[in-house]
Structure formats: C-alpha cells, structure tokens
Design a protein around this nucleic acid. Sequence first.
DNA 1: GGCGTTGTTGTGCAAGTGTATAAATAGCCT
DNA 2: AGGCTATTTATACACTTGCACAACAACGCC
Lengths: 228, 228
Amino acid sequence: MNARRKFRREGEERRRQDLIDATLDSVAEHGLQGATVRTIALRAGVTAGLIRHYFPGKEDLLQEAYAALMGRMTEQAKAALVMEDASPRQRLAAFVTANLNAPIIDQRVFSLWATFIGRAGADPSLARAHREGYLGFRNQVEAVVAEVLAAERREPDAAELRRHAIAINAIIDGLWIEGCLAGEMFSQGELAAIGIKAVEAELGLGPLEPDDFRSNRPESESGSKSKR
Amino acid sequence: MNARRKFRREGEERRRQDLIDATLDSVAEHGLQGATVRTIALRAGVTAGLIRHYFPGKEDLLQEAYAALMGRMTEQAKAALVMEDASPRQRLAAFVTANLNAPIIDQRVFSLWATFIGRAGADPSLARAHREGYLGFRNQVEAVVAEVLAAERREPDAAELRRHAIAINAIIDGLWIEGCLAGEMFSQGELAAIGIKAVEAELGLGPLEPDDFRSNRPESESGSKSKR
DNA sequence: GGCGTTGTTGTGCAAGTGTATAAATAGCCT
DNA sequence: AGGCTATTTATACACTTGCACAACAACGCC
C-alpha cells in the first residue's frame, strides 16, 4: 500500500515547456498569488519538487513564463505583416485586422499581460522586456507606415513618421484592450473596421482607389495625378 | 518593560481611508502577493489585527481599495470636461490633454490599474466595475464628440457617433499606457499633441478657424461658409 | 538481465499567511 | 477624577508557502 506514484521521464525541453505553460495557466486563472509551486506542479502533472530541478527558483520560472508569453504575442502580431503580393496599404489593414481578432484578442492573454505588466514599475527586468517588445512592435508599424506613405507619393520626415507610429500603436493597443475586456459589446469584425478607419484617418488616407487593389505597382512617375 | 505600544484613536472614516491608502501603496509596490495584512498595517501605522476591526476580511479591503482607485481615476478624468466658456472643440482638446499628462499619466496608478484589471477575467465583480467605469467614460466622450460635430454643422447618426467614441477612447487609452510605461521616451506635452491630432483626424476636423477661439458662439445660420 | 545515471517523488521545515480572540488603554461622558 | 466603551494591541493557531534533501525508480547502456 501507499505505493509510490508512477511517472514517466520526459525530455528536458518538453518538461520545461509544460511547466511554463502550467505557470501561465495558473497565473491567468488565479493571478500571481495563486501561482504557487504546488498549483503549477499539479497542473503540469508532476509534483512540486520537480520545479526546483528545472529552475533555480520560482521567480526564475515566472520570469521565463513571461518571456515566453511576450515572445508568442509579438510573434503572432508580426506574422500578419509578412504578406507577399499585397500593397502596403493592404498590408497595413491586414496588420490591424490581425491584431483586433482572435487569437490576439483574448481575455486570457490579456489577463496575463496585465498581471505581469503591473509589476513592470517595480521590476526593472520586466520593464526592459516590455520596452524592447514595444519598440520592436512600433518600429514594425513605422516601417509599414513609411511604405504606405511612399506609395502615396508623400515624403514625411522622421518626426512625422514617429508621430504616426505612436498614434497607430495607441489605436491598436486601445482597441485591443476594449476587445479583450468587453468583447461581447462589439460585433464580429467591428473593432477591426473601427481600427482601420482610425488608422487611415490618422494617415490622412482617402478612400481606396481601384489602382490600389493591384499589388506592388511600379513607381511610375506619371506626376501628381493622384495627389490630394 | 515590554511596554505595550502607545496608540491614538482615530476617527472611523480616517482609519478606513488610511488603511485603503496603505493597501493601494502596498499593491503598487509589491503587487497583490506583497499586500499582506501585516505589510498594509505597518504602512498604515497600526498593527495587523486592526484591519479585521474595520473590514470583514482582507478580500473586502482589496475590493474597497479597487473601488476607491477607480473612483479617483474617473473623477479626475471627467474633471477636465466641465470647463465653462469654451467651444466644444476646445473642451475635447482639453480633455485629451488632461488625460495624457500628470496626474493621470502615472506609473503607480498604471501599476494598480493593471494589477487589478488582470483579475477582471476571473472576478465578475471586478469585471462589472470596470465595464461601468468604461461605459461612463465612453459616454462622456460620445457626448463631447456630438457637440463638436454639431458645432461643425455635421449630423452623424448613432452608429457613427459610437464608432468615433470607441476609437477616441482607444487613442486615449493607448497613449495613456505608452506614457505610463515609458514616459521618458516622450518629450513634455508630446503625447497630448499626438493625441489631439489623432482625435481630430478621426473626426475629420480641419485646422482651427479663428472663429473657434471665441467661446460658445451662438448658432448663427450663416450658411455653409465653414463647410469643407 | 543487471547496473548506474538522474529525472522524479515524498517528506520535512522554517517563515509567512489570514483570522480569531483576549487583554489593554485612549478618550469621552458625567 | 473615575468609569465605560470601543479602538487598538498582542498573542495564538491552523494553514500555506518556497525550498532542501533523501529515497526511489525509469530509462539507456553494457
């Protein structure tokens, strides 16, 4: 009786991932206070002692879990930008749409983000991790904006470009929060539509010309016909 | 010796406020996990047992602290809207400016907001508190937007008004987050300037006419001179 | 099959947790 | 001044927490 529990040996990478996933689940469900080594271990299907075999301490596990979360978020967000054969403007719209629908709009991810970011003020390493992720994101936005404006024959200076990137970033972030916190208040695709309109207004883009539906049109120097 | 600690009797309201403030300080500094009854009591200058004299349990204290925080935030945010003798457009700009400067842009308040809101997904009472605050805020925005557009002789329908309010709310929220998390990346007043431009772009407002500097101009029916 | 390595378990422990409760005392009323 | 009462302190308690460590057994290797 009192038989010792059966177990299987998993590969190191697999176990670490399982523990990290279990950590994120625990934090999402019960917050940082509910993420105890025992809760996490139970969720991962192991016993508490094992955590210390893979991580120096609970703090390190939390740190790695946060890094993993940020990595997945920015990875998904940027994925929408790599469309080939699309005009800059279409790519920008696709980017906004991707960021304002599932799986980016997700209450669980938002809870995790908020829980961790709330500690950024006191934890310099968290603050730095956020800043890097944020700047990477904003630079991506700035690059697309530059392409869009270039396609419109406009030549914004660096300051204007920066302003647009900051504003567009804010629009996406703000709508993301609204969608995560009160998703059922918005109809399907509504947030994305609002976001695209707001972004186009910020950039001073008029309605789409038929030309813009063609992809990658060559830079003809046909003059100022399409200028405002 | 081992003399019992001296103490003073404070009024009930004062003590409750002190305990709530100490709670918010503790949460802001060390997160929910760091906000223990002993930490809070120490900060408030009392001993731990007293908390149970004013609150049924720690959970209730946290709840009241969150309510107090939300109350102060929305109160400050709305305060900027009650300007008399100003055109709707000026009031909107003042509103944006107020929300994108101290004391609304504040790392401590942001940490508190994020920490609590991260629990909204699991705690229905928190979710409801947020939703009410959010809708109140958005309705304020919608009202000012309606005034601004009316002054411009435009007649948006309800759906368009709602869209503008959601977008403007997102712009303010997004810039607020950027400012709280990385305030030193922006120069003085930069966020407010970006916010005002973005909001005016969203509403399709052109540059200010001299007329608009006069306050409360009567609705003259001088025709469409100022129309786009 | 036997054996060694090491991933994994189970137990123990000191520190810290929220709460209950008794003892003390500050401040008001007469 | 003296007593009443409710505020405040102090202590106790059951429970949880992160971590240390020894025993164990799964798996690769011979």
